[in-house]
Amino acid sequence: MAEKTIMLACSAGMSTSLLVSKMQAAAKADGVDYKIFATASSDIDHQLNGESKPDVLLLGPQIGYMANDIKKKTDKVGIPMAMINMQDYGMMNGEAVLTNAEKLLGDK
């Protein structure tokens, strides 16, 4: 069973899907077990208020304009949130994005 849940969100949840695969590979190589998934920005509210809400939320650069509004929602439910570094996102650098998520989780 996964220790923590990391949620990535972008416009439609499709462009972050490849990044999720890269992050899962990096987690496996590091010997850690995380549930990592991607979703559309329109699904964020549902995920944050569901019974299996994530432990951290990372936003794709293309929805950066939504960050302030989403941050208010994540603060309200006690979930850390950050933007994915644009260069790491563009390069699909799963290891770097995973490391940033772990910092938010307090795991590194």
Rank of each mutant, 00 (worst) to 15 (best):
N68C: 00
M1I: 12
Y65C: 01
G60L: 07
S21Y: 03
M7K: 02
V56F: 06
A96T: 06
I70H: 00
L104Y: 09
A38F: 09
M83A: 10
A12N: 03
E102K: 15
S17M: 09
A27E: 05
S42I: 13
L104H: 05
I6V: 15
M1L: 06
F37P: 00
A101N: 11
D45R: 06
D88V: 01
D33A: 10
S42R: 13
N49D: 11
A67H: 09
D107L: 14
A27N: 05
T5I: 15
I36D: 05
N93F: 11
I84N: 05
D69W: 00
G78S: 05
K4Q: 06
M1F: 04
D30H: 08
V32F: 02
D30M: 12
G78I: 08
A12Q: 03
N49S: 12
A12D: 02
G50T: 14
L18W: 05
M81Q: 11
S15C: 11
T5R: 12
N100R: 15
Y65A: 13
H46K: 15
L59E: 02
P54K: 07
Y89N: 06
K73A: 14
K103I: 14
A40T: 07
S15M: 05
A2N: 01
L57W: 04
A67R: 04
S42A: 14
D88M: 02
K4H: 12
L8G: 11
D43T: 12
N49T: 14
M7T: 03
N93D: 15
Y89R: 05
P80Q: 09
I70M: 03
S15I: 03
K53G: 10
D55M: 13
N93M: 04
N100I: 00
G78M: 08
A82F: 07
I36S: 10
M83F: 06
P80E: 13
A38G: 15
P61N: 05
C10R: 07
I79L: 12
A40Q: 04
V77H: 02
P54N: 10
K108V: 15
K35M: 12
K28Q: 14
S15G: 08
A26D: 09
V56M: 10
S52A: 14
S21N: 15
I84H: 07
A67G: 00
A2K: 04
V32H: 01
M91H: 04
G31F: 10
M86C: 01
D33T: 12
V32D: 01
Q62Y: 01
I84R: 02
T99L: 08
Q24K: 15
Q24P: 00
A9T: 11
D88E: 13
G13L: 10
L105D: 04
M7Q: 01
D43V: 14
S11D: 04
P61D: 08
E3G: 05
Y65Q: 07
Y34D: 03
E95H: 15
K22D: 02
A27M: 09
A25N: 13
F37H: 13
Q24I: 08
I44C: 08
M23T: 03
S42C: 03
D69P: 00
C10G: 12
I63D: 07
Y65G: 06
D75C: 03
A29W: 00
G106L: 12
D33H: 11
Q24G: 00
A26I: 03
V77D: 02
M81G: 00
Y65L: 09
T39K: 13
P80Y: 13
M23I: 04
A9H: 07
L18E: 10
A101P: 02
L58E: 11
L98N: 13
P61V: 09
M91F: 14
S11Y: 04
